[in-house]
Computed example of a mutant assay.
Amino acid sequence: MSATTIPAVAEERTAPAIDAPDRPRSTKLRLRPKVRAGRVLLSVLAVVIAIVWVFPVYWMVNSSLLPNRQLQSFIPTFFPIGGSLDNYGNALADGSFFTALGVSLSITLIVVFFCLLFAFLASVAISRFRFRGRASFVLAVLIVQMLPAEGLFIAQYKMISSAGLLNSIVGVSIIYTAAVVPFTIWMLRGFVAGIPAELEEAAMVDGLSRSQAFMRITFPLLAPGLVASGVFAFLQAWNEFTVALVLLPSEQMHTLPLWLRGFIQASATRETDWGQVMAASTLVAVPVIVFFLIVQGRMTSGLVSGAVKG
């Protein structure tokens, strides 16, 4: 009798253990299609947003390859079938593009260098040291950003004119640097503050001085922050139009935005050739694209993550 009852008791004890894992598995199986459907919808939405964002750039490049009569047609041409590079040749014919390119590159490189230098020193002082007037300095940086640039044109023009720096790369670079460096300080300050000071203290325990510990340990970790701040300074200096229009009246000292404006004005005296205008716009955008291709690896790398463990 005991031999017949023992298997029955064993079956009763083992039955719940067999049925218990099946319930959550069935629930997970029912939830998976919903999760996948949500991911598909988000992916489709992301693709639609990306297309909307990229389409103006594509339309600019597409229009630069088409003749003006085809662009003025009521039927849009979405693919440059039968297009040519004639618009680019016409835009580069007089050689003024390369002169404007040299001016823009010179101004932009000067502004990026000095902005990063001043912003780096200021952000280190704000983040690593406690001194009298520190809060007032940070507040002044924020207040400067609130001032409208247009309200400073007269004062800037008189200052640069009295210094004899009109139509000069140095004069425009000084104004650009003064305008960009406050936000660059605020931006780079967040990167410096995000790096733990314990890394420098550990290096100082090993025998390094404070400056050596900062340059050898902290400074390499600031590479993404420096690149991001440099990109901001680059874009501000490269695309700036109004200050250059005031301080660079000579055509020989025009930057690329001013060159593009002059190109459109020249086209406006006759029937506007939108193909050439789009070709000129594409030429202005190419250096920015090349710059981003060079620095995008540093911008996306998380060098700071995992610096402190345990």
Score class of each variant (00 low, 15 high):
residue 81 I to K: 05
residue 88 Y to W: 12
residue 132 R to I: 15
residue 92 L to C: 03
residue 66 L to F: 07
residue 154 I to H: 00
residue 137 F to Y: 10
residue 173 S to A: 15
residue 120 F to L: 09
residue 109 L to G: 09
residue 177 T to A: 03
residue 175 I to R: 05
residue 137 F to E: 02
residue 39 R to N: 12
residue 168 S to L: 04
residue 57 V to Y: 13
residue 43 S to L: 15
residue 100 A to W: 04
residue 156 Q to M: 08
residue 80 P to G: 01
residue 70 Q to A: 09
residue 160 I to G: 01
residue 87 N to M: 00
residue 83 G to T: 00
residue 120 F to Y: 10
residue 75 I to Q: 13
residue 82 G to V: 08
residue 137 F to C: 02
residue 158 K to T: 01
residue 40 V to W: 13
residue 132 R to M: 10
residue 174 I to N: 05
residue 81 I to L: 13
residue 118 F to E: 02
residue 54 V to G: 01
residue 122 A to I: 12
residue 100 A to V: 05
residue 146 M to P: 03
residue 61 V to E: 09
residue 59 W to I: 06
residue 158 K to P: 00
residue 108 T to S: 05
residue 122 A to T: 14
residue 49 I to R: 04
residue 161 S to F: 01
residue 87 N to K: 13
residue 84 S to P: 03
residue 86 D to Q: 13
residue 59 W to A: 09
residue 142 L to A: 04
residue 41 L to V: 15
residue 160 I to M: 07
residue 93 A to D: 09
residue 51 I to A: 06
residue 86 D to E: 15
residue 105 L to P: 08
residue 38 G to T: 15
residue 73 S to R: 14
residue 42 L to N: 05
residue 161 S to G: 04
residue 75 I to M: 10
residue 100 A to F: 07
residue 56 P to E: 03
residue 94 D to R: 06
residue 150 E to A: 14
residue 76 P to W: 08
residue 111 V to R: 10
residue 121 L to S: 07
residue 150 E to W: 11
residue 135 A to Q: 12
residue 91 A to T: 05
residue 107 I to T: 02
residue 145 Q to T: 05
residue 150 E to C: 04
residue 50 A to I: 08
residue 40 V to C: 11
residue 84 S to A: 09
residue 151 G to C: 07
residue 40 V to R: 14
residue 128 R to H: 01
residue 69 R to S: 14
residue 106 S to T: 15
residue 153 F to Q: 05
residue 38 G to H: 12
residue 100 A to Y: 05
residue 85 L to T: 07
residue 115 C to D: 10
residue 113 F to K: 08
residue 53 W to F: 08
residue 166 L to F: 00
residue 103 V to F: 08
residue 129 F to L: 08
residue 139 L to K: 12
residue 62 N to F: 04
residue 119 A to W: 10
residue 172 V to P: 08
residue 57 V to W: 15
residue 122 A to K: 01
residue 173 S to P: 13
residue 97 F to P: 03
residue 44 V to K: 10
residue 42 L to Y: 11
residue 50 A to P: 01
residue 89 G to T: 10
residue 129 F to K: 07
residue 43 S to N: 13
residue 173 S to K: 06
residue 103 V to S: 03
residue 178 A to D: 05
residue 89 G to R: 15
residue 146 M to S: 13
residue 102 G to D: 03
residue 153 F to I: 06
residue 105 L to M: 14
residue 73 S to E: 11
